[in-house]
Design a protein around this nucleic acid. Structure first.
Length: 300
DNA sequence: AAGTGTCAAGCATTA
DNA sequence: TAATGCTTGACACTT
């Protein structure tokens, strides 16, 4: 399967727009509080259902949902929201649709989620973030499996990789069973950070799979080809089909873009990667990029 | 209505 | 020591 992340441009451009990332800034949260978050969450979850229906109709069965689905969820329990019952009902419909249409849904908490941080506060906030993502998947009644993954980075070293790996594993141990069973860890995009072989070693003995990001491997290859690196991660998924990320740098396509910027639309997805994993296409053109890549591949 | 600066949370790197 | 990139979109205020 091929998939895309977060925003569906076709649906966003409808009137009224269909989108799952209605959010607010701090001043608004302080003014209007969880009651407004509840309104936004209900609209977001209902639009998630609409997005999933659109995806199924277009045979796009892999989707990463935004972490803004329930805005400011670190500040309240989902069950305390005034619209909780309606949100739960809408989430159940999402889960049922996902199972009926054999789709795959994942999450990717934001960059500040640092389970291996050397700050206890940051670790606590990070554990909390993974937990509320897991709550959302529970609300949808989806299996507690990395198939419906919550994907994070270690994303830092704090000057000591071994100690960071150890803190990360400790944080994993502190997660609830439902959150732990869904966690996946992705290779970083900078030479000094966490490469595929380092992650595989650091997570050895846990059940946490390593998610292979093709573009990021460019920055942390450690002498491994893309295929060799993917093979190392594939072994960490057990019986679950691996999820991977694929993108091409915008620079490949001409522009004098920043090195890590994604191309609007990749030229191709390697056949071996498609055969052996569900591939999340990270590209500016979102769902249109996936359709273009899929059609190009099918035609050839 | 359109344009612009800014945005809860973290880190590494560069200036 | 302080800005900046990360990556990209949308909020929220100004015009």
């Amino acid at each position: 399967m091929l998939g895309y992340a977060c925003m569906n441009h076709t649906l966003r451009d409808r009137e009224p727009p269909v989108r799952c990332n209605r959010d607010m800034q701090q001043a608004t949260f302080e003014e209007r509080g969880p009651a407004y978050a509840s309104e936004l969450a209900l609209q977001n979850v209902r639009d998630l259902h609409e997005t999933l229906r659109w995806n199924a109709a277009h045979d796009l069965r892999f989707y990463r949902c935004t972490s803004a689905l329930v805005p400011w969820n670190s500040q309240f329990d989902l069950a305390d929201l005034p619209d909780y019952e309606a949100i739960r009902a809408a989430a159940e419909r999402c889960g049922a649709l996902i199972e009926r249409e054999e789709m795959r849904l994942t999450f990717h908490p934001d960059y500040w989620c640092r389970l291996g941080s050397d700050s206890a506060d940051t670790r606590a906030n990070s554990v909390d973030a993974v937990e509320y993502h897991a709550d959302w998947l529970d609300l949808m009644d989806l299996d507690r499996s990395p198939y419906y993954g919550i994907n994070v980075h270690i994303g830092a070293t704090y000057g000591d990789k071994a100690a960071t790996g150890s803190r990360f594993r400790d944080a994993v141990d502190r997660l609830s069973p439902g959150a732990r069973a869904r966690l996946t860890v992705e290779n970083d995009d900078r030479e000094s950070l966490w490469s595929v072989p380092e992650l595989v070693d650091a997570l050895d003995g846990t059940d946490v799979p390593v998610l292979f990001d093709y573009h990021h491997h460019t920055f942390t290859d450690r002498g491994l080809t893309y295929r060799e690196a993917f093979d190392r991660t594939a072994a960490t998924w057990g019986s679950v089909r691996p999820a991977t990320h694929y993108s091409e740098p915008a620079r490949l396509h001409g522009a004098d873009a920043r090195p890590r910027a994604h191309a609007a639309c990749p030229a191709r997805v390697p056949g071996w990667l498609r055969e052996r994993s569900d591939v999340m296409i990270e590209a500016g053109d979102k769902e249109r990029a996936v359709e273009a890549v899929r059609d190009a591949t099918t035609a050839s």
